[in-house]
């Protein structure tokens, strides 16, 4: 780790780029690295040589570079640091992707591990605390744009409570009776479940998605057509019909709460 710690900010950037390229295609070509960092190829070559000297990458002239074991560890750490900061900037401070990327590149070299850990903990806390969450962050975004608006505070706190109770209920329900997975065509009229996933691809899947068959959505089977084939389901408050063959492509989750 010591040789990684001593890296300059630029070399760290190089190491990260190589790591990403390696993850995507197994190796990193000089041209690709140059493209990614918007520098000239000759600059890249110099940097690669320097990284190779430190034992972080395997590199020979005109050959693509790959990471050594140490290099991979170092890059992981660097990438992680970069990611944590970038995500904090986009997800908590609701900055746009470009600003976040730029600032993450700068901040990752200046920040201490302790601060980084706190940032992570804070992001986790904000996203998962019932008083925070996506809505709270959304509220912050609104605040940044429009300034203070205290009219909705009460409603917002109410919603927090509602959400909290709902998640409690759901987690209790899943704790009590284990949920069962089935396909939608196996359900009987009157059965309720939640969409888990769609197994098929192509036109059918696309159509199902468009019509609102997405993960987590509650669904109720209403009836089967008199001749026994298409079935009618209620989803998102409207009636949808689909053939059994199509329903068979939809996996649903039934928990005891819903069957009762």
């Amino acid at each position: 780790m010591s040789n990684v710690a001593a890296l300059s900010a630029q070399l760290e950037d190089y190491l990260e780029s190589i790591a990403r390229l390696c993850r995507e295609s197994g190796e990193a070509h000089v041209q690709e690295i140059a493209d990614r960092l918007s520098v000239h190829k000759s600059t890249v070559t110099a940097a690669l040589r320097s990284l190779a000297e430190k034992g972080l990458i395997h590199y020979r002239a005109y050959r693509p570079a790959t990471l050594t074991v140490t290099g991979r560890k170092g890059a992981k750490e660097g990438v992680r640091r970069h990611e944590v900061i970038r995500q904090f900037l986009t997800d908590v401070l609701v900055l746009d992707a470009e600003t976040a990327e730029r600032n993450a590149c700068e901040l990752e070299h200046a920040i201490e591990k302790k601060v980084l850990d706190r940032l992570m903990a804070y992001a986790d806390f904000v996203q998962n605390c019932p008083r925070g969450g996506a809505k709270w962050i959304h509220g912050f975004e609104h605040y940044c744009r429009e300034g203070r608006d205290s009219d909705r505070c009460e409603r917002c706190v109410e919603l927090c409570l509602e959400d909290l109770r709902r998640t409690r209920r759901v987690s209790n329900a899943t704790k009590q009776g284990e949920s069962r997975m089935q396909t939608l065509d196996q359900l009987k009229p009157g059965d309720r479940a939640r969409i888990a996933r769609i197994e098929r691809k192509g036109a059918v899947s696309r159509r199902l998605l468009d019509m609102g068959i997405v993960r987590g959505t509650p669904v109720e089977v209403v009836k089967v057509a008199p001749l026994g084939d298409p079935v009618e389901v209620k989803i998102k408050g409207y009636s949808l019909s689909l053939r059994k063959a199509e329903a068979a492509a939809v996996t649903v989750e039934i928990s005891d709460e819903e069957t009762s």
Binding site: G202, A203, V204, R207, L208, M211, P230, E232, Y238, S239, L240, S241, L242, R243, E246
Partner: peptide
């Protein structure tokens, strides 16, 4: 080709 999906809304 695949038969057209019968995923169809039953409007009110």
């Amino acid at each position: 080709g695949e038969t057209a999906p019968f995923v169809m809304e039953l409007p009110p």
